[in-house]
Amino acid sequence: MPIENVDTDQIIPARFLKATERKGFGDNLFRDWRYESDNTPKKDFVLNNPIYSGKILVGGKNFGSGSSREHAAWAIYDYGFRCVVSSFFADIFKNNSLNVGILPVTVSPAFLDKIFTAIEADPKAELVVDLSAQSITIAATGESESFDINSYKKHNLMNGYDDIDYLQAMKEEIKQFADKSIY
Protein backbone atom coordinates (compact mmCIF):
# COMPACT_ATOMS: atom_id res chain seq x y z
CA MET A 1 0.00 0.00 0.00
CA PRO A 2 2.32 2.74 -1.22
CA ILE A 3 0.16 5.57 0.17
CA GLU A 4 1.51 8.25 2.51
CA ASN A 5 -0.24 9.52 5.66
CA VAL A 6 -2.55 6.51 6.02
CA ASP A 7 -4.54 7.82 8.97
CA THR A 8 -6.49 5.93 11.62
CA ASP A 9 -9.81 7.16 10.21
CA GLN A 10 -9.01 5.18 7.05
CA ILE A 11 -7.75 2.16 8.97
CA ILE A 12 -11.00 2.02 10.94
CA PRO A 13 -13.63 4.73 10.41
CA ALA A 14 -15.19 6.19 13.57
CA ARG A 15 -18.61 4.73 12.88
CA PHE A 16 -17.19 1.27 13.62
CA LEU A 17 -15.94 2.19 17.08
CA LYS A 18 -19.19 1.48 18.85
CA ALA A 19 -18.42 -2.00 20.14
CA THR A 20 -17.85 -2.63 23.82
CA GLU A 21 -15.81 -5.74 23.10
CA ARG A 22 -12.59 -6.25 21.27
CA LYS A 23 -13.44 -8.46 18.35
CA GLY A 24 -14.51 -8.43 14.73
CA PHE A 25 -12.71 -5.20 13.84
CA GLY A 26 -10.82 -6.84 10.98
CA ASP A 27 -13.97 -6.92 8.87
CA ASN A 28 -14.00 -3.15 8.77
CA LEU A 29 -10.28 -2.63 8.29
CA PHE A 30 -9.91 0.08 5.61
CA ARG A 31 -13.67 -0.11 5.20
CA ASP A 32 -14.12 2.90 2.94
CA TRP A 33 -11.15 2.03 0.74
CA ARG A 34 -12.15 -1.61 0.57
CA TYR A 35 -15.85 -1.35 -0.17
CA GLU A 36 -18.23 0.77 -2.24
CA SER A 37 -21.11 2.35 -0.35
CA ASP A 38 -23.28 -0.64 -1.35
CA ASN A 39 -20.72 -3.00 0.27
CA THR A 40 -19.37 -4.45 -2.96
CA PRO A 41 -15.59 -4.75 -2.77
CA LYS A 42 -13.61 -2.15 -4.73
CA LYS A 43 -11.61 -4.07 -7.31
CA ASP A 44 -8.61 -1.80 -7.39
CA PHE A 45 -7.90 -1.91 -3.64
CA VAL A 46 -4.92 -4.10 -2.65
CA LEU A 47 -6.62 -6.07 0.12
CA ASN A 48 -9.29 -7.12 -2.37
CA ASN A 49 -6.72 -8.55 -4.74
CA PRO A 50 -6.09 -12.17 -3.74
CA ILE A 51 -2.66 -12.08 -5.31
CA TYR A 52 -1.46 -10.12 -2.26
CA SER A 53 -1.43 -12.08 0.95
CA GLY A 54 0.58 -12.51 4.10
CA LYS A 55 1.05 -11.27 7.63
CA ILE A 56 3.09 -8.19 6.83
CA LEU A 57 1.43 -4.94 5.84
CA VAL A 58 3.70 -2.50 4.01
CA GLY A 59 2.58 1.14 4.05
CA GLY A 60 3.83 4.55 2.93
CA LYS A 61 5.39 7.22 5.11
CA ASN A 62 3.60 8.52 8.27
CA PHE A 63 1.51 5.41 8.75
CA GLY A 64 -1.14 5.50 11.48
CA SER A 65 -1.43 9.25 11.97
CA GLY A 66 -4.50 10.70 13.60
CA SER A 67 -6.49 9.43 16.50
CA SER A 68 -5.40 7.39 19.50
CA ARG A 69 -7.97 4.68 18.78
CA GLU A 70 -6.35 1.35 19.54
CA HIS A 71 -9.13 -0.07 17.38
CA ALA A 72 -6.88 0.70 14.41
CA ALA A 73 -4.27 -1.73 15.72
CA TRP A 74 -6.96 -4.25 16.69
CA ALA A 75 -8.39 -4.13 13.16
CA ILE A 76 -4.98 -4.76 11.63
CA TYR A 77 -4.31 -7.60 14.08
CA ASP A 78 -7.77 -9.09 13.72
CA TYR A 79 -7.43 -9.08 9.93
CA GLY A 80 -4.35 -11.26 10.35
CA PHE A 81 -1.38 -8.92 10.14
CA ARG A 82 1.36 -9.28 12.76
CA CYS A 83 3.80 -6.76 11.40
CA VAL A 84 3.54 -3.34 9.73
CA VAL A 85 6.43 -1.92 7.74
CA SER A 86 6.80 1.76 6.89
CA SER A 87 9.49 4.41 6.72
CA PHE A 88 7.72 6.43 9.42
CA PHE A 89 5.03 5.75 12.03
CA ALA A 90 2.85 8.07 14.05
CA ASP A 91 3.79 7.81 17.74
CA ILE A 92 0.54 6.69 19.31
CA PHE A 93 -0.07 4.12 16.61
CA LYS A 94 3.37 2.65 17.18
CA ASN A 95 2.74 2.30 20.92
CA ASN A 96 -0.70 0.83 20.37
CA SER A 97 0.66 -1.72 17.90
CA LEU A 98 3.27 -2.93 20.33
CA ASN A 99 0.63 -3.18 23.01
CA VAL A 100 -1.59 -5.45 20.94
CA GLY A 101 1.23 -7.61 19.61
CA ILE A 102 1.93 -6.11 16.21
CA LEU A 103 5.53 -5.34 15.39
CA PRO A 104 6.01 -1.95 13.71
CA VAL A 105 9.17 -2.06 11.62
CA THR A 106 10.65 1.27 10.58
CA VAL A 107 12.86 1.04 7.51
CA SER A 108 14.74 3.72 5.60
CA PRO A 109 12.84 5.46 2.77
CA ALA A 110 15.25 3.86 0.30
CA PHE A 111 14.61 0.39 1.66
CA LEU A 112 10.86 1.00 1.61
CA ASP A 113 11.16 1.88 -2.09
CA LYS A 114 13.03 -1.37 -2.65
CA ILE A 115 10.28 -3.32 -0.94
CA PHE A 116 7.60 -1.67 -3.06
CA THR A 117 9.66 -2.32 -6.19
CA ALA A 118 10.04 -5.97 -5.24
CA ILE A 119 6.29 -6.32 -4.61
CA GLU A 120 5.49 -4.60 -7.88
CA ALA A 121 7.79 -6.94 -9.75
CA ASP A 122 6.31 -9.96 -8.02
CA PRO A 123 3.21 -9.64 -5.86
CA LYS A 124 4.21 -12.86 -4.17
CA ALA A 125 7.59 -11.47 -3.16
CA GLU A 126 8.51 -12.68 0.30
CA LEU A 127 9.59 -10.45 3.17
CA VAL A 128 11.31 -11.94 6.18
CA VAL A 129 11.18 -10.12 9.51
CA ASP A 130 13.40 -11.52 12.23
CA LEU A 131 12.67 -9.96 15.61
CA SER A 132 15.51 -11.55 17.52
CA ALA A 133 18.05 -10.44 14.92
CA GLN A 134 16.13 -7.18 14.37
CA SER A 135 16.41 -7.52 10.60
CA ILE A 136 14.11 -7.34 7.61
CA THR A 137 15.06 -9.07 4.36
CA ILE A 138 13.62 -9.11 0.85
CA ALA A 139 13.88 -12.83 0.13
CA ALA A 140 14.19 -12.55 -3.66
CA THR A 141 17.15 -10.20 -3.65
CA GLY A 142 18.61 -10.94 -0.26
CA GLU A 143 18.70 -7.22 0.50
CA SER A 144 18.39 -6.64 4.19
CA GLU A 145 18.19 -3.84 6.72
CA SER A 146 18.24 -3.80 10.49
CA PHE A 147 15.54 -2.06 12.55
CA ASP A 148 15.35 -0.59 16.02
CA ILE A 149 13.28 -1.75 18.94
CA ASN A 150 14.10 -1.17 22.58
CA SER A 151 15.17 -4.23 24.50
CA TYR A 152 12.30 -3.95 26.98
CA LYS A 153 9.64 -4.13 24.26
CA LYS A 154 11.54 -6.79 22.39
CA HIS A 155 11.71 -8.94 25.49
CA ASN A 156 7.97 -8.49 26.05
CA LEU A 157 7.02 -9.32 22.47
CA MET A 158 9.21 -12.39 22.37
CA ASN A 159 7.94 -13.70 25.68
CA GLY A 160 4.30 -12.69 25.45
CA TYR A 161 4.47 -10.40 28.51
CA ASP A 162 2.90 -7.02 28.58
CA ASP A 163 3.15 -3.72 30.38
CA ILE A 164 0.23 -4.50 32.63
CA ASP A 165 2.06 -7.51 34.06
CA TYR A 166 5.09 -5.35 34.65
CA LEU A 167 3.14 -2.59 36.39
CA GLN A 168 1.20 -4.97 38.61
CA ALA A 169 4.48 -6.30 39.91
CA MET A 170 5.54 -2.85 41.14
CA LYS A 171 2.36 -1.62 42.78
CA GLU A 172 3.91 -0.98 46.17
CA GLU A 173 6.49 1.32 44.62
CA ILE A 174 3.70 3.15 42.77
CA LYS A 175 1.70 3.56 45.94
CA GLN A 176 4.62 5.15 47.75
CA PHE A 177 5.11 7.47 44.82
CA ALA A 178 1.43 8.44 44.85
CA ASP A 179 1.55 9.26 48.55
CA LYS A 180 3.97 12.09 47.81
CA SER A 181 1.92 13.55 44.96
CA ILE A 182 0.30 16.94 45.55
CA TYR A 183 -2.60 16.17 43.21
Binding site: S68, R69, E70, I92, N95, N99, I164, Q168
Partner: peptide, 22 residues
Protein backbone atom coordinates in the same frame (compact mmCIF):
# COMPACT_ATOMS: atom_id res chain seq x y z
CA UNK B 1 -1.56 13.31 25.77
CA UNK B 2 -3.77 10.66 24.22
CA UNK B 3 -3.36 6.97 24.94
CA UNK B 4 -4.69 3.70 23.56
CA UNK B 5 -7.10 1.34 25.28
CA UNK B 6 -4.36 -0.98 26.64
CA UNK B 7 -2.89 2.08 28.29
CA UNK B 8 -6.28 3.10 29.66
CA UNK B 9 -6.27 -0.30 31.32
CA UNK B 10 -2.80 0.36 32.72
CA UNK B 11 -3.84 3.70 34.22
CA UNK B 12 -7.00 2.28 35.72
CA UNK B 13 -5.18 -0.62 37.31
CA UNK B 14 -1.89 1.01 38.30
CA UNK B 15 -2.13 4.80 37.69
CA UNK B 16 0.96 4.49 35.49
CA UNK B 17 1.86 3.93 31.87
CA UNK B 18 5.10 3.01 30.17
CA UNK B 19 6.41 5.90 28.13
CA UNK B 20 9.68 6.64 26.42
CA UNK B 21 10.48 10.31 27.00
CA UNK B 22 9.84 12.28 23.79
Amino acid sequence: FGIGTSEVEMVLSSQCIMQPKP
